[in-house]
Every structure is written in C-alpha cells, then in structure tokens.
Nucleic acid binder design. Structure first.
Ligand code: SF4
Ligand code: SF4
Lengths: 145, 145
DNA sequence: CAGTATTAAGAGTATTTTATCTTAAATTAA
DNA sequence: TTAATTTAAGATAAAATACTCTTAATACTG
C-alpha cells in the first residue's frame, strides 16, 4: 500500500530537512540539500519549485541563494503540502479501485473506508511540518526504505 | 493514494464476478470472464493462476473448463486474497515512505498510523468475498475508474 | 562588472508497472 | 480421437513513473 508518490516523499523529506537545517540561516542551498538527502538535484529542484509556486517557500537566486520557508513551518500542515504534491483527490479514492459506487450501492467496506479517509485527512491536517521535522532524525531523511 | 495494485484490483474484480456468476454453474470460463470484465485474458489468467496456487480456486482444463471456488467465498477474506496478490507487507509501511524509525523516535503520526493500519487490516479481515461480490453490481466490475 | 546560483522549460533516459502475445504442453468432454 | 480449454514460461510492448541532463534566462553578491 503506497500512500505517497516519490515526489511527495522527496518533497516532505526536503521540507523536514529545511526545518532543522534552516533554523537561523537565511536561505538553504538546494544543491547541498540534494546531496545530503541523496536526491537528484534537478529532480528535487522541480519539486521545490512547485512548493515555491504554491507559496510555502521563498527562493533567492544568486550567491547564498536557496530556499527558505515563506511562513512558519508550524503553520504549514502536511495536508497543505500533499494537496499540492499529490493533487486534490489523493484522499478520495475507492478502496478497491472501482468507480464510485458508494452513493447508491455501497459495499460493506465503503463506510468504514470513508471514516478512515477522514481520520487520515485529520491526521495530515493537524500535523505540521515543524513537528515532523523535529521528530525525525536527519540521518533517516537520506536513507531510502 | 493507491491502496491496491492493478493485479490486485483485477483479481478482486474477478473473484467478485465469480461470486455472482459462478452460482450453480460448475466452472466459469476465464475467456468469457476476461471479456465481461474488460481485462486482458492473458493478464487475468496469470492473476487467477496465483489464486489457484494459493488454494482459493480450483481449475479444470478442457471443454467446459474454467475456475471455481475451492471453498465457500464466505470463508475467504479480502485479507487472505490481498496477502497473496500484494505481498505480506502491504499493510506495514511507513506513512511517509521513510525507513522504519517508529520504534526509537516515532514521529507524531506514527502511532495514529499504526492504529489505522490495524483498522484497515481488520476491515479486510472481516470482509469476505461473498459479501462484497453480492453488494457490488456487475456493471461496475467492468468499468475502470 | 564578474561570478554564482536559482528559475524555467523541456528533452531525454531509465526503471517499474501494466499489458499483450507466443508457443507448447497437459487435461478433459464428447 | 478431436476440439476445447487451462497451464506454464517467457518474450515483447506499452504506459506510467521516476530520474537525469541541457540550455538559457534571471537575479543577487561583492
Ligand atoms: S462501495 Fe466499496 S467498491 Fe464501491 S466505491 Fe465504495 S469502497 Fe469502493
Ligand atoms: S515515525 Fe513517522 S516517519 Fe517514522 S516510520 Fe513511523 S510514520 Fe514513518
């Protein structure tokens, strides 16, 4: 069961990295970041661009440029980020991959699954980047499972 | 968020089909099944072979051959089937796709996610093929989302 | 100004997943 | 025996996803 796509996974890892490594500093260099997280620089760049466009990050070109949070990471929920990286519908799919039959003839799992999706949504909504970033150790961010 | 792979999805659709179409009849022809479900015959065949090898189905070659449940579909849970089609670890992955850090330094979501995984496991465990098969209308099984 | 570093768009490659096709053997009904 | 049908293994193709590379513009620092 795959919850997140690789781009989402990398995006979150980068944001978590930024929480701990970006404290105090101004901008964090993307190239260094890519190296420390063991992610392709160009690939990471694209992901971060979408996060900048979405307003989570601000970027600066030129020497000592890089990215930085546009607002306090305590005020960015994982749900906000995942809506951008996964799309708005990432929590609204049928458990079995069938076309939506739930409204008229729900299978025995439909309602339970709907509840779980809400729970998951709440979990992502009430977890902010700051807290996950602080709780996951840096070394873990560069190891892929 | 993709819960099931295509092979799992197709396998379940085929089993659900077999619940309603297989009543009374002896063996159900795989070729017809593939046509009615709009799934490639060869692809479906491979999936069903693994379900036969796993002991859920019995098959018969020759004229009027096909597949049939080896045991009452009421006694086959979705969990049983998914363990075969998805692998044993399909409900044990990190929400964020990170390597297992939960035991030592769990992030704020780890425990909630663990609970949800158990809930989902229970849901799959306590839902049997017969009930889902009966509740989902046949036309739905041939439409892909 | 010179140099550095991001932004941007997109081409291109690689890998994985999904799907199709081929061939041949085994089994069964009639 | 003959035709129908699954089994089996594997080659191949297509599609989706993941990743890399190229180029050029832009903006900042010193
Ligand atoms: S009723 Fe069941 S099969 Fe249909 S959309 Fe809901 S969860 Fe999926
Ligand atoms: S602690 Fe959080 S990030 Fe780590 S394995 Fe558990 S859910 Fe994943």
């Amino acid at each position: 069961m795959k919850v997140l796509s690789k781009p989402s996974e990398y995006g979150l890892r980068a944001l978590m990295f930024l929480v701990t490594k970006g404290e105090g500093k101004g901008y964090v260099n993307i190239r260094e970041m890519a190296e420390e997280l063991d992610i392709s620089f160009h690939f990471l760049t694209k992901i971060l661009q979408s996060l900048t466009q979405a307003g989570f990050l601000v970027s600066s070109r030129g020497p000592n440029g890089g990215i930085s949070f546009a607002r306090n990471p305590q005020q960015i929920s994982l749900l906000d980020v995942l809506y951008v990286l996964e799309g708005q519908d990432f929590l609204s799919k049928c458990l079995l991959g069938l076309p939506g039959c739930g409204d008229f003839a729900p299978c025995p799992m439909h309602n339970s699954w709907a509840v779980m999706r809400v729970q998951l949504r709440n979990l992502f909504e009430h977890t902010n980047l700051s807290e996950v970033g602080q709780s996951v150790q840096l070394e873990r961010l560069r190891l892929s499972p």
